[in-house]
Structures are given as C-alpha cells and as structure tokens.
C-alpha cells in the first residue's frame, strides 16, 4: 500500500510541474504587455510601471521567472494579488472554505438521493419506474446549470420569496468566520437557530444547482454498476443458496456495485471544488470559482497563475486519494500494489 502511494505521488510530481508550466506560459501568452494591461484601468506613471514590473519579477529572463514561481510556490509563497495586494495564499484560504462547504453539501444530497434512485431503477429494470427515474437523471445530467439556477431563482426567490438570491448569510448577521463553514460557525459564534437557518437558506439553491449533475451521474452509475454485478457468478451462487432477494442485493451485490460509484464520487468532489465557477457566479457565492473568474476579468495574473496551480494540486491530490480508496475497496487489486 505504501509503495503504491509513493508511486502515485512520484507520478503526480511531474504532472504538477507540467501544470505549473502551463499556468506560467498561459499568462505570458497574453498579447501585449501584462504590466500595462494590469495597470490599464488604473493608469500609472512610467515609474509605477517599472516598479510593478520589478515587483512581479517580469524584468528577469523567462527561465528565471519560472524558477522563482515554482521555488516560491514550493515554500508556500504564491505571490501577491495585483488587485488587493494581499498574498494569493491568504485570498485562497479565505475563500476555499466557502467552496468546500458548498461542494460537500451538494455532494451529500447527490449521494443520498442518487444511490437509492440508481438502486431502485436497477431493481425495476425495464419497468415504468426505471424509465421515469432514468429520464429524470438524464435531464439532470444534460442540464445547463446556469439556466437551471436561473429557473430556481425565478421560482423560489422571485415568485415564492422563500430563499435569498446571493451571498452566504444575511447582512444582519455579523459573522466572524471561525472554521469558514457557516453552517458550523453560526453555532460557534452563538448566532443560534436564526443564524443557522439564514445560512441554510442561503445554501439551499446553490447546493441544489451544484449537486444536480453529480446526482444524475451517480444515479446512472449506480444503476449500470448494480445491473452488471447482478450478472456475476457470486450473485448466481447467492441465489442458488436460496438467500432472500433483499440479502442478495443489499449484502452481496450492492457492496461491490458501489466500488466504481465511490470512485466517481471522489472524482466529482475534485471537479466540484474547482468547477463551481458557474454556480458561484450565479449566486454571488464568495468561493474560489468566482474569485478565479473575477481575476480573469481583472487581469490579476499572479492570482490566475497561482490559483490554477493550487486548484490543480487539489485535483491531483483528490485523484490520488480516489486511487487509494479504489484499491482499498477492491480486494482483488490489493495483490497488485
């Protein structure tokens, strides 16, 4: 197991180096002088331009710039935002809990609903129940979520007035973050039910939108995986032994059917953490996705360069974890590692 982990980590190293090179080069491919572009809207004297160029290290040769970028990143220094002048790492850690909380809640409902629906569809295969459930998940899977979010806002916020449309909590609550998870912090800071409810209320629609595609993917995956497992020999053996249908499905088949589903869930989380761009933009959710889009629009190149790298580290780490989980869950693979 340990050697497997080491091998995966060794493999991840060059990938992350490649990612850092791509992030580095992308920013430098921008036509025109990035310093002038960055100062564009803010203006600047020649001295200010020279100063910024020097601060960003852009007056050095490319290979030196790249070396500084990765050497500093390795020590946890990801540069400063041009817009806020704060360290990129601080800006990232400020926003990351918001994204993590939203992603976890989205994934939670996606799993809690997706797995049972997949199981029911598989057990009712080729019956109307299967068709209805699979149609629902196909629609969910095909959903342009930015439009789905607009429709939900139109219904729940505009027409019914049930939920707020933006932010994480009402302005009336002055919440000093503790963990950055508002569902938790409202309790820690003693805002009680009212505060907690406000946080939940702000969370419902974004989490519903963000979890839609994972829900659909999990339901489809669970169904096809369970159907495949039900044809395996050991299931036939279990049937021949005269076990009850319930025992066959829930004790023997489902456990194995869920192995690929678990890996999909793990990969989904990696995607959600970084891919909440649309949902966060739509609901003004102060997370990393919205931060990256804002940095693109503001041409905040240090943030883009380091932000892309940080998010990629997350994805790669998530993939390694999923691999480990997969081998741990699947005893047949343990011998090979």
């Amino acid at each position: 197991m340990l050697s497997f982990l080491l091998r995966r980590l060794l493999h991840a190293g060059p990938t992350l180096l490649g990612v850092s090179l791509v992030a580095f080069m992308l920013i430098r491919l921008v036509p025109g002088d990035p310093v002038l572009l960055m100062l564009g809207e803010r203006g600047g004297s020649p001295e200010a331009v020279a100063q910024l160029r020097h601060n960003l290290g852009l007056d050095q040769p490319l290979y030196m710039q790249y070396w500084h970028f990765i050497a500093n990143a390795a020590t946890g220094d990801f540069g400063n935002s041009v817009v806020s002048n704060r360290p990129v790492w601080e800006e990232f850690t400020d926003r990351f809990p918001a994204t993590l909380e939203l992603s976890l809640v989205a994934l939670l409902w996606a799993v809690l609903l997706g797995v049972p629906i997949g199981v029911i569809a598989a057990l009712k295969r080729r019956r109307w129940m299967d068709y209805v459930l699979m149609s629902v998940s196909l629609v969910g899977y095909s959903m342009p979520i930015f439009w789905w979010g607009l429709m939900l806002i139109l219904l729940f916020s505009v027409s019914l007035g049930w939920t707020p449309v933006s932010g994480r909590i009402s302005a009336a609550f002055d919440l000093e973050p503790w963990s950055g998870f508002y569902l938790l912090d409202t309790w820690v800071r003693g805002l009680g039910w009212a505060g907690f409810w406000a946080a939940v209320n702000h969370m419902i629609l974004p989490a519903l939108v963000l979890g839609t595609i994972p829900f659909a993917a999990i339901a489809r995956m669970t169904r096809s995986s369970l159907l495949e497992v039900m044809r395996e020999d050991y299931v036939r053996t279990a049937k021949a032994k005269g076990l009850s249908f319930f025992q066959i499905v829930f004790v023997h088949a489902l456990r194995n059917a869920l192995i690929p589903v678990v890996t999909v869930i793990g990969l989904m989380l990696g995607m959600l953490l970084t891919g909440a761009v649309l949902t966060e933009t739509l609901f003004s959710w102060p997370g990393v996705g919205r931060w990256m889009v804002a940095s693109v629009l503001a041409r905040d190149y240090p943030v883009l360069q380091s932000g892309v790298l940080l998010l990629s580290v997350l994805i790669v780490a998530m993939n390694v974890l999923v691999d480990l989980l997969y081998t741990w869950l699947n005893p047949r693979l343990r011998g090979n590692v």
């Binding site: 990938t15 992350l16 490649g18 990612v19 791509v22 992308l26 920013i27 491919l29 921008v30 995607m271 970084t274 891919g275 761009v277 649309l278 996705g289 990256m292 889009v293 693109v296 629009l297 041409r299 883009l304 892309v308 998010l311 990629s312 994805i315 790669v316 993939n319």
Partner: peptide, 17 residues
Amino acid sequence: ILMALPSLLLAIVVVAV
C-alpha cells in the same frame, strides 16, 4: 496535465488569454 487542470476554468483562462 490537462486533466489536472479544472476544465471550465482552463477554458476560461484560455479565452481570457
């Protein structure tokens, strides 16, 4: 490398460039 980059974000950065 491409799969390690957040996909929609990659598209956004490329378009920004």
